[in-house]
Nucleic acid binder design. Structure first.
Lengths: 267, 267
DNA sequence: CGATCGTTTGATCGAGCTCAAGTACTGTGG
DNA sequence: CCACAGTACTTGAGCTCGATCAAACGATCG
């Protein structure tokens, strides 16, 4: 599957350079940080560099110290599926180190970033020793899983292209809002980064052109708003409604997957 | 599907009834087993009963003691996506208990089965106390993640319906072969259960009819063989090749995920 | 100022979905 | 033993949606 992406290590001679240190946002305890910094090796990456690639043996986990990375899978044919973007202080490659020992997604730097590379065995022993690291890893994995399921959902379950795109936009905001359940309602949210139509296509399984047409359509309908480099979701609720537009009259199913646990006997 | 699958809890008065005990296959240590059995509540389920449902608060994890269950997501419209089938001794609902606290897939019994229901808090404390349980959970989560990514891949990355179905068949055998990397080559493998065309459709995001046509086509081409109730994959390699059939001559992309870090002058 | 990248729009075409009809198989009760 | 459901499989015909191809336009940047 393609050229090996020559991962070259631009190691910081002094790991103290690494911006990984206790701070408000940092989820790691000071002890854990100390261990990580003695073991981990700090690496710089430019935009579009590959941090780790699917299919390759998982010898390290990578802690994204600064910058962002997109997590994606690719077919041998060149098609991409972008699962999500990872922000700083996230751990990449967990699934492989803990499980199948082969990375199952690719992480690609969105811009310049620094990552700390931690050998598999070392990370496992840190996890063993420090329940906090272990727990954080668990939560990270659980989130990754939900995210992958969301991606699969929108690809399989939305019938129309509009539904897929709407779902991708909504999932994005949900996954990347700092607070979990915050502003999930009807407040407009806006897209931060340079998201190209091509990337949106890769997130929703559509072609560039279709994305473009849909964006234009959504704007005409007042569902979203485009200013400068931001996409603002004006009406998340109606977007949500697009998700499962029934194209034809009514599909006879009165009861979708019928809420089964309605009357749950105590216990 | 149709009618509401009435969750009824037929609790074994005596948890000793539960078939969960040390055995060759059981991954749990005797101590862990003992704790699980004192805390867990054993429940019987009939075919098509819902064990846990996506979107509901995650108050328990479920240990599948005997039987099988399919893991799926559904849209409000009735469309399904089957992620995989879980076998006995697997833990269900982990992602929710460790992460978002809302189940993100539904588990539905394939046949009669018994599950042990373990309250969230109890399970977390068992995990805390027993590193083995913790590690097993990690591995399970990692596997679930890979599986979800595989599902997303085949939905987004296969261009043709044939590719999607082929990929679903191959993924199934990979996920359900006891040995991981065993017989991954060109040995024929066969499908065990009653898998209906409808279910295959839900695994690959296709309609029943399309699945039927493709199955017929595959058989004509000697890729698979249908005897009795089994589907035998005669030629996995050629199926694999179908995954990314390029419909048109040659898509100009010589290099799949174009190795971006090709010639990088060191630092 | 040209060059490159991303966006925009149109026209065409075909894969796969939907609808519809008919067949094979299984289990059940008389 | 057969009739009768009920379920799953099969096949055909039409049609829609989105991919593909093509061709500008517009910005950003060196």
């Amino acid at each position: 599957m393609g050229r090996r992406p020559a991962i070259l290590r631009r190691t910081c001679a002094n790991t103290a350079n690494c911006t990984l240190r206790p701070q408000a946002l940092c989820p790691f305890s000071p002890q854990a940080l100390r261990r990580l910094r003695t073991i981990g090796e700090c690496i710089s990456r430019e935009a579009n560099d590959i941090i780790l690639q699917e299919g390759y043996p998982a010898d390290h986990v990578f802690l994204l110290c600064t910058g962002q990375a997109k997590l994606l899978t690719s077919s041998s044919e060149g098609r991409l599926l972008i699962l999500r973007t990872a922000n700083s202080l996230e751990i990449l490659g967990l699934e492989a180190v803990l499980g199948s020992s082969v990375y199952c997604v690719t992480a690609q730097a969105l811009g310049p970033c620094t990552v700390m590379s931690i050998p598999r065995e070392d990370f496992l022993s840190i996890m063993d020793a420090d329940p906090q690291v272990s727990q954080l890893s668990m939560q990270a994995l659980a989130r990754d899983f939900s995210c992958a399921v969301l991606a699969a959902r929108r690809l399989a379950l939305s019938t129309s292209a509009a539904g897929k795109l709407a779902c991708a936009l909504l999932d994005w905001t949900q996954t990347h809002q700092p607070g979990e359940t915050r502003s999930r309602d009807h407040l407009p949210v806006r897209f931060p980064a340079h998201v190209t139509h091509e990337e949106l296509g890769s997130m929703s399984g559509l072609s560039r052109e279709t994305v473009c047409r849909l964006i234009a359509q959504f704007r005409r309908e007042g569902l979203i708003h485009l200013n400068h480099r931001y996409i603002t979701l004006v009406d998340p609720d109606r977007l949500e409604g697009l998700y499962c537009e029934r194209p034809h009259p009514a599909p006879s199913h009165p009861d979708p997957v019928p809420a089964p646990a309605s009357s749950r006997a105590s216990s």
